[in-house]
C-alpha cells in the first residue's frame, strides 16, 4: 500500500521581508480527512505560511504542491479556483446581508435566461441551497433569511465556515477562527470543523488556543523561527510539550538528550 498523495504540500518554502526571514525552509503535508493544526508563537511564521498557501504573496523559494503537482498561486483568486478556502479570525461576513447572501457573496446564483444576464439574482435557489448546506453541517441558525447581524458571534463564524466549506473542494484553512468567540461559540466552530473533516475535506487549523488544538487536531505541526520544528500527536503528546517546542525550551538536540537520559 503506497502512501496517499497529500492534497496540499509545502516543500522547503522560504520567505523574507527585508532583513526578516519569516519562513525558513518550512515543509508541511496535508492529507484528506485530517485536521492539521499549525501552532507557534507570535512571529513564528504562521501567517506568512498561510499567505503563501492562499496566494496572497509567492514564496521566495520552495514549492507548493497541489494534488502532487507544483502550483504557482498569484492571487487569492487562484487559490480559490483550486478549491482552497480560508476562514479568517475577524468574522469576515457582511452583517447587513442574510446568511444565504453571505455564503454566495461573490459567487451569486443568477436567474436562468435573460433575467440572469441582466443581473437578476436567484434568491430562492440560494436560500434553499444554503438551508441544505447548513443542515448538512448541522449548523443551527434560526433562518437563512435572517440578516447576519441578528446572529450570535458563533453563528456568524459558522456562516463564514459554511461558506468556505461550500466552495472548498480541496482544503479549508482556518486562521484563528475562534479568537473572537466565547466558550460555547468556540465549541460550535470546533464541532463544525469536525463535520468538515468527516466529509473528507482536510482542515488546516491555525491557533494559539492549545486546549482547542489538542481537542480537534489529528496532527499538530509546531512552527518556530519560520520552520516546522516538530510534529506532535495530540493523543500521546501534551500541551506542555507543545509549549516547550513553541518557545524553544525544547529543541531537537534537547529532546534527543531527554530521550537518551
Amino acid at each position: 500500500m503506497s502512501a496517499p498523495t497529500p492534497v496540499l504540500e509545502v516543500r522547503g518554502v522560504s520567505k523574507s521581508f527585508g532583513a526578516v526571514r519569516a519562513l525558513d525552509n518550512a515543509s508541511l503535508q496535508v492529507f484528506p480527512g485530517q485536521i492539521v493544526a499549525l501552532i507557534g508563537d507570535n512571529g513564528a511564521g504562521k501567517s506568512t505560511l498561510i499567505n503563501c498557501m492562499t496566494g496572497v504573496f509567492p514564496p521566495d523559494s520552495g514549492e507548493i504542491l497541489f494534488d502532487g503537482q507544483p502550483v504557482h498561486l498569484h492571487s487569492p483568486q487562484d487559490a480559490r479556483n483550486l478549491g482552497i478556502e480560508t476562514v479568517y479570525q475577524d468574522l469576515a461576513v457582511a452583517p447587513h446581508l442574510d446568511s444565504a447572501a453571505n455564503i454566495y457573496l461573490g459567487r451569486e446564483a443568477m436567474k436562468p435566461g435573460i433575467l440572469g444576464k441582466l443581473g437578476f439574482l436567484d434568491n430562492k435557489f440560494m436560500m434553499e441551497e444554503t438551508a441544505g448546506e447548513l443542515k448538512r453541517l448541522r449548523v443551527r441558525i434560526p433562518d437563512p433569511r435572517r440578516r447576519v447581524f441578528t446572529l450570535s458571534g458563533g453563528q456568524r463564524q459558522s456562516v463564514a465556515v459554511a461558506r468556505s466549506v461550500k466552495w472548498a473542494s480541496k482544503v479549508v484553512i482556518m486562521d484563528e477562527p475562534t479568537a473572537a468567540l466565547g466558550v460555547a461559540q468556540s465549541q460550535m466552530v470546533l464541532d463544525l470543523m469536525r463535520e468538515v473533516r468527516n466529509s473528507g475535506i482536510p482542515v488546516i487549523y491555525v491557533s494559539h488556543n492549545m486546549p482547542h488544538v489538542f481537542e480537534v487536531a489529528d496532527r499538530i505541526m509546531v512552527l518556530r523561527l519560520g520552520t516546522v520544528v516538530t510534529e506532535l500527536d495530540p493523543k500521546t503528546d501534551t500541551i506542555d510539550q507543545a509549549v516547550g517546542w513553541m518557545t524553544g525550551s525544547t529543541t531537537m538536540s534537547s529532546s534527543a538528550g531527554n530521550e537518551a537520559a
Binding site: 479568517y88 469576515a92 461576513v93 452583517p95 446581508l97 443581473g119 439574482l121
Partner: peptide
C-alpha cells in the same frame, strides 16, 4: 429594481456592510 433584485445592488450593500469581507469574497 437594481438595488433590491440584482447583483449590482447586492454588491452595493455588501461593500457598505463590510468592505474587507467583500474584497475577500472576490468582489
Amino acid at each position: 429594481i437594481i438595488l433590491s433584485m440584482t447583483r449590482f445592488g447586492r454588491y452595493t450593500f455588501a461593500i457598505g456592510s463590510n468592505q474587507a469581507a467583500a474584497r475577500r469574497a472576490g468582489i
